[in-house]
Design a binder for these strands. Sequence first.
DNA 1: CGCCAGGTTGAAGCGCTTCAACGTCTGTGG
DNA 2: CCACAGACGTTGAAGCGCTTCAACCTGGCG
Lengths: 184, 184
Amino acid sequence: MAECVPFSKGEWDRVQPLHEVKILEKNELLLRQGEICTTLAFVVSGALCQFRTEDVDPYAYDFSFEADYAVDFASFAGQKPSTIGIRALRTSVLVCISKKNLDAAYKVSPAFQEFGRLMAERALVYDDDRVKSLLYDTPEERYLNLMERDPELLQEIPLYSIASYLGIRPESLSRVRANLNKKK
Amino acid sequence: MAECVPFSKGEWDRVQPLHEVKILEKNELLLRQGEICTTLAFVVSGALCQFRTEDVDPYAYDFSFEADYAVDFASFAGQKPSTIGIRALRTSVLVCISKKNLDAAYKVSPAFQEFGRLMAERALVYDDDRVKSLLYDTPEERYLNLMERDPELLQEIPLYSIASYLGIRPESLSRVRANLNKKK
DNA sequence: CGCCAGGTTGAAGCGCTTCAACGTCTGTGG
DNA sequence: CCACAGACGTTGAAGCGCTTCAACCTGGCG
């Protein structure tokens, strides 16, 4: 975490205690849909998914893998009710910081400001890609891209969650996969 | 610009000269697709659109209205060729800062760091909404939302650009609109 | 064993696309 | 001033891809 930004020793000592390590078992919730998201979680290991419960099937809106952040940012930044929940797909180790502590960290550490900016920018590039992918790529292409990003995912979470991330129905994903098998 | 972040007088004096005001006439390009995006532009007035030229029709990927930023962020941050172009939809007044100057500004001003972070976070919430909208909303709903955000847009840019922003073909948008007229 | 969750497959339906024709408006040149 | 061309939008008809609904299969588990 500290490698990419030049923290001074003093800064790091003040900022580090504001964090908290949290371990989530598989299927445990980091955030319940409708609650205010008070915690920003950095995924040290494991994987989480953000989902909506309105729909019949648990609807996966996004995944967070190692070195990603897991958060409903709109809820966290604006301190308003979240529109999604967050659940651990596997046992996951998180480094968490509360909204209050994060604001405090930003106050005492310019380097942490920079770090926060870089993280937001990285997330921005990711979201940008996702928008492009939803606009321009076929479900099959989106599926192949996701598999490339995390091949193990397939072994651990139901296909209907993957389908919802891709923006299609489970049955359609099933056919996409059948098609890919035929091609090979 | 300075209102939302506590710039000290000295900081602001050092950062302000790094910016440059630019005026773009209608249809003038801020960025040509394939070039490296070297400039971050804040839209003081006017409107721009980000588009791809691969497609037959100019494909609008996103719009930038007043108080938005116009930039291919992936290209700007990574200094690699852009996948989109940026064009003025109307005569637009921009406050620009180059990648080099922005990095310099971040170095001399912690308040500017914070400002940058807040801007990235705002863009993040926007992109997040867009992803949700593409996943969950119908083209008709997306159309109504866009019209609410900038009703004048309709008068100034071709419908086929709006269609591509929504992720549908011009003919489909035409039918959506015909449908809405019938309903009223 | 029997149940249930997850996945696949088939058939029908629907929404967006594709292609083609036509309408309208605007600008341009004879 | 009219004629014509080109850009933009609309409309119709056919096609295709994803959805919907229903049936069925499989593996895990009480």
